[in-house]
């Protein structure tokens, strides 16, 4: 199973222009839309913002994973962007500089569930997230997802 199958060079933006969380989500959603992954950008954004309102999606260490399982999504995909430090919680106690926008269609196939599990397992590896936070180019970020653990180990 390959996590990098969810993303691609055109879904990665190492220098985002967003000045706030909402802009960051929009900026990445636009990449998904341009790549033909969405049926409706507006409907998808609505679902993501609804989810975000229920509970902010920061996971600590400067990383957030806004996401939605939405009828507006054609196929599971992941957009990755790096931005200036943004207030993710609305209270200033969580600053985010790496955003991964995850889009999943309403009906999730079993293989995609496995990818979600593997993505989660990668993100709890500090070695991986440290490298991700340091990476500056599209290619570097993509390669990290493709290779998984930076030390070449197997994804459990």
């Amino acid at each position: 199973m390959q996590i990098h199958a969810l993303t691609s060079l055109r879904l990665i933006k190492p220098k985002m222009v967003a000045l706030c969380k909402e802009e960051a989500i929009r900026e990445l959603a636009l990449l998904l839309d341009k790549a033909g992954k969405l049926k409706s950008l507006a409907a998808f954004l609505k679902d993501v913002f609804r989810r975000e309102k229920e509970y902010p999606t920061g996971i600590g260490r400067g990383i957030a994973i806004p996401h939605a399982r939405s009828a507006a999504v054609k196929e599971s995909c992941l957009a990755v962007g790096k931005c200036r430090r943004l207030d993710w919680s609305g209270t200033g106690d969580e600053l985010v500089e790496l955003v991964m926008l995850l889009a999943v269609p309403k009906t999730v196939e079993k293989e995609h569930l496995l990818i979600l599990k593997e993505l989660a397992e990668l993100l709890v590896e500090e070695k991986f997230t440290e490298r991700l936070l340091k990476a500056c180019t599209r290619e570097e970020i993509y390669r990290l997802f493709k290779e998984g653990y930076p030390d070449g180990g197997e994804v459990r």
Binding site: R51, E54, Y55, T57, I59, I65, H67, A68, R69, L102, V104, V108, L116, K117, L119, A120, E121, L123, V124, E125
Partner: peptide
């Protein structure tokens, strides 16, 4: 979690680790 696509998987991976 509500959606079951992100936080629940992250929490599972974190606890396991």
């Amino acid at each position: 979690c509500m959606m079951g696509i992100a936080h629940s998987h992250m929490a599972a991976a974190a606890l396991k680790k």
